[in-house]
């Protein structure tokens, strides 16, 4: 008899650590950047396609979820999927160049091969919002994760009541997706755009999102409170003011959804970098209803 302790000889001997050999923790899809559009000086829209056709068709996500995008040797980071869930593995990501990976992405060309893993995280439950009025509020880069639920709503336009979008950026040149506003408007939606600071070519409204929101909330207060679901995404400072106003207007907390951002290194609930208090933003978020977000210490 040999004395070597053989692996797997006694399944389950380590208490409850008895999971079978799982798929690799690091598994990801091969994907290719098929198109790149410059949206502003800092943000580009990347169209990304999973290489394997079957994987591409099987790739399903819900609006608000994110993927981890990886370039070997450069880095990996989370990005919200900004395209319609109907388009499966033909993803659109809108990325601002801020650090290692994102600045590298800023310089790549079409055909660049990337790794995609996911989709990860919770989503905006637009499937439960049928019959409701939808209020989307985005500040700055916050429009990126909101574009996916917007597409889902537009794709099923007759299932929803009124659709309002309030979108604010600092300056007109920082507005994203300007080429699409007309297309969105054709779906009978009310799109209001504001900038903090206009310029000579700007004829739209100037001011904070909260001012536009105040007008909107005043317009039909009670009706709004009764059947509105709100989705809010933007820089940390925005949440506080906007959500406060929505609650004062009578929209129940559980019908307000926010998408939060934290540092992430795995997207799989392992690295702890994304924790708020002690909740994983990557697993329990990034989308939270306001009640849950309020219960997280230091979330908003």
């Amino acid at each position: 008899m040999t004395n070597r302790v053989t692996p797997y000889d006694t399944p389950g001997r380590h208490g409850r650590c008895r999971a079978g050999d799982p798929a690799s923790f690091e598994s990801s899809f091969q994907a290719e950047i098929t198109n790149i559009y410059s949206l502003t000086a800092r943000e580009k829209l990347y169209q990304i396609q999973l290489v394997d056709q079957e994987e591409r068709n099987r790739f399903m996500f819900r609006p608000g979820q994110f993927v981890m995008l990886e370039i070997p040797g450069i880095g990996e980071a989370p990005f919200s999927i900004s395209s319609s869930p109907l388009r499966h593995g033909n993803l659109e990501l809108c990325i601002r160049a801020v650090g290692n990976l994102t600045n590298f992405l800023d310089r790549v060309r079409r055909g660049c091969s990337v790794g995609i893993s996911g989709p990860f995280g919770t989503h905006f439950p637009v499937e439960n919002m049928h019959g409701q009025d939808i209020l989307l509020i985005a500040g700055g880069l916050g429009i990126v994760p909101l574009r996916s639920p917007l597409w889902e709503v537009l794709d099923n336009r007759n299932r929803y009541g009124t659709v309002d979008i309030i979108y604010g950026a600092k300056r007109p040149v920082e507005l994203l997706f300007t080429y699409q506003y007309e297309e969105w408007r054709q779906f009978d939606i009310n799109l209001q755009i504001t900038v903090d600071q206009g310029d000579k070519d700007w004829h739209g409204s100037v001011g904070l999102i909260t001012e536009i929101l105040k007008e909107r909330l005043n317009r039909d207060g009670d009706a709004l409170a009764a059947k509105t679901c709100a989705i809010v995404c933007g820089p940390p400072v925005m949440f506080h003011f906007v959500c406060d106003m929505l609650i004062k207007a009578g929209i129940p907390m559980q019908k307000i959804f926010v998408s939060l951002e934290r540092r992430m290194h795995c997207g799989r609930g392992k690295c702890c970098r994304c924790n708020i208090g002690s909740t994983y933003t990557c697993l329990d978020g990034p989308v939270f209803d306001y009640w849950s977000a309020m219960n997280l210490k230091e979330a908003i």
Binding site: V5, P7, Y8, H14, G15, R16, C17, A19, D21, P22, A23, S24, F25, C266, R268, G269, K270, L283
Partner: peptide, 26 residues
Amino acid sequence: NKLDKVLAESVYPVSSYIRKRRNMFI
């Protein structure tokens, strides 16, 4: 045992950790 809870028994188990754990004789 506590590490197992996160790394082996929850969503996205870490395969390399599990392999090490299963090869331990304690």
